[in-house]
Design a protein around this nucleic acid. Structure first.
Lengths: 238, 238
DNA sequence: ATTGGGCTTTGACTTACGTCAAAAACGGAC
DNA sequence: GTCCGTTTTTGACGTAAGTCAAAGCCCAAT
């Protein structure tokens, strides 16, 4: 893939002029990674940030016991580890390649220099960090205040909203999805089967169909035990 | 408190010139809130951000069942809800006053206009968002990968590192601390007593003394981040 | 088709932590 | 001091979800 083309496709750079894009492409370095490759580990000195030209990457954390938690999954056009640019230090999480592809690396200092002369880029970056912040706050809310069925239900509804189709494919292998939802494969499996048994979804392999979206919304919205006693009134509190 | 003085004391604005500070003070609006007052609720349209001139505020989330989780506690010189400025929408969490004081409100649009002409301010803001992001990532790691004793131990060690004194005062009432650690008062109380029984700390009311910092570090899981695998010998005995 | 290794599922069991309810302890008002 | 409301503690108990271990599956490579 052409580097200039890849740079132009990055959402963070939308609205910038040709000259600026060329300058960005100038500082970017193309890297090719294969599935399973580690791009960086949490705790390593943060040298710069990345974007996905093609492929898929996961940002995750591990406990000492080896349990993993996935913070993000990024695909083409998205950037990650941009936190490296503004507060130095180390990467706060690890990055591993889920699908072979090409990645662009933007070294910290060279990027900062560009940023100085590009107020539009700075504003874009502020918007991006802002959205990240919102994502994390939401994830925190899920993790601390809602249980696994609620998190899964919300995720399935999100997938449906994105795909607009009745039958939808899981975006990740189930083990990874479990880590993304802050649980383990066994638990995810059990909850999926429960949804299945209750007739809320039909599950077959890596795709599934939502039969009763209202019921899922009840699970997702009402942190409750979901036995169906609650009405899905859907009001987002206060 | 004088508004110009309060504005100059805001960390986010450090390094700015007199003119810029005056302009910022110009757009800021002073508000006085009493303990218990709600500054905003999650879900409300985000009009702008705030800073603490004096007092203390907590940023928190609630579940439908009424459980609370505290994301941040901010004191004098700190700003909060800055996410409102860059991605519009609604406040992602609620803010409530813990201690009476004066707060400055910076309306979204007027602040954005200032930002356009102030690259230094933009850079400061990028740094701030970046640090917030790191805080949240760490909190996510704690919540999803570590249990309550580990979180409490890490927090106590942090307090000690900040105060540099042997006897340290809890920064929050215990109920609030529990919500900050992602648990409930009963559980916090039990874990504190366990630490006490094991001779790791001496607890008296709202202050405590750390007797065995090494033991606390073992609970907290020393080493924190990092790619390597360590032995999880989290000390369960005694 | 057969093998083998990674995922995924299932079952039996354990446990950290939440819930509920009742006592203590604390702190301010009088 | 006494009283009252709030916060904190303690105990008994329940449960969501994790652990451990054994099948079951699925697909790529032989």
């Amino acid at each position: 893939m052409d580097k200039n083309q890849a740079v132009a496709a990055i959402g963070l750079f939308s609205g910038l002029g040709q000259r600026e894009l060329a300058a960005l492409a100038g500082v970017a370095e193309t890297r090719r990674y294969a599935r399973g490759a580690d791009i960086f580990f949490a705790g390593e000195p943060a040298q710069g940030f990345f974007s996905v030209a093609s492929g898929k990457v996961r940002i995750y954390q591990t406990s000492l016991a080896g349990k993993e938690h996935i913070l993000h999954v990024f695909g083409p056009g998205e950037v990650f580890a941009e936190v490296a640019v503004f507060s130095g230090g180390v990467y706060p999480a690890s990055a591993q390649v889920l699908e072979d592809g090409e990645y662009l690396f933007f070294p910290r200092e060279r990027f900062r220099r560009l940023l100085k002369d590009e107020p539009d880029l700075a504003m874009n970056m502020l918007g991006l960090l802002s959205i990240r912040l919102r994502q994390l706050v939401k994830k925190l809310e899920d993790l601390s205040l809602r249980e696994v069925p609620a998190r899964l239900a919300a995720h399935l509804l999100l997938l449906q909203a994105q795909s607009r189709k009745r039958r939808l494919a899981l975006d990740l292998p189930k083990g990874q999805l479990a880590a993304y939802l802050g649980t383990i494969p066994e638990t995810l499996s059990r909850v999926l089967r429960r949804f299945s048994d209750e007739g809320v979804i039909i599950l077959s392999g890596t795709t599934l169909e939502i039969l009763d979206a209202g019921r899922l919304e009840a699970y997702a919205g009402v942190g409750g035990t979901g036995g169906g006693k609650e009405d899905a009134s859907g009001g987002r509190g206060a």
